[in-house]
Amino acid sequence: MSVNAYNFKETMNKPERLAPGHRMCAGCGGTIAVRSVLRALHEGDKAVIGNATGCLEVSTFMYPYTAYEDSFIHNAFENAGATISGVETAYNVLKRKGKIEGTYKFITFGGDGGTYDIGLQSLSGAMERNHDFVYVCYDNGAYMNTGVQRSSATPMYADTTTTPVGTKSVGKMQNRKDLASIIADHDVPYVAQTTLLGNFKDIYTKSEKAIYTEGACFLNVMAPCPRGWKYPTEDIMEICRLGVETCYWPLFEVDHGKWILNYEPKKKLPIEDFLRPQGRFRHLFKKGNEELIEQFQSEVDRRWEDLLFKCSRDR
């Protein structure tokens, strides 16, 4: 597999495989993630797109219209991994029996609800069986489709509708689950964490690698949700940049077991820079809550050090 030199203009001018006219919110990070991943499919290659129930599904395939140029399957909320397992296996059999000829790739999308939580078993099974597909989690850190309920991907202290901030509550009490590590521990060929950045080279390169690496691959894409995170819609790229520059959302790959750090900020920004623009963390900036921000910072630091260790170990 060769990754050609990245050309921003050429990449952005590729025909859209998620057509306009769907009903996702303006500025939705999930939609940008899907379009970014699908751009990495080589021209001429066909794909079957899978999808767990969520915002993306109910807004892109409202009967009788589909926004996808490719074949698409939605089954239920908790079984996107198993569903694409069946599709990929069918492809192998039908190809072997000479019933189909073309080359197909299999890409499944799920939000953090369908991936970290209700669909984790199904995902784990599909990863362990090493079906040749890519699972893309567009992680917006809560159950956005049902109205911003906490998930195991929700960061600590976030204000959600099931962890509301109140006189006796400072938001979600638990840390987020580190799903990329969990999937990497399935010993799959390729796992990467990315988000929407600059010229989109990071997400493009990782998507291409994931799609064209044989076996089960996993992409975790931080995909901000302006409604759930409560920031001005047009600020999405800045929010993503701050996520990376504060080391809240590090960019890394686990390529055949080898941990690789893709970006190390020259000057790691304080976590406040990421938290401050988001309404879901507004309460942390009230007088007397300084300690909560310190705790948040120390958790970010702990995870960052752990990542640096893994990556230096494998260097």
Binding site: I73, N75, N79, A82, V87
Partner: peptide, 23 residues
């Protein structure tokens, strides 16, 4: 092709995927 799924839930889910795919 036998898929040794991790649950019956996934068995029916994968059967749905395979059948929809044309198998």
């Amino acid at each position: 092709e036998f898929i040794p799924v991790e649950s019956e839930h996934s068995a029916m889910s994968a059967a749905i995927g395979a059948s929809a795919a044309g198998a």
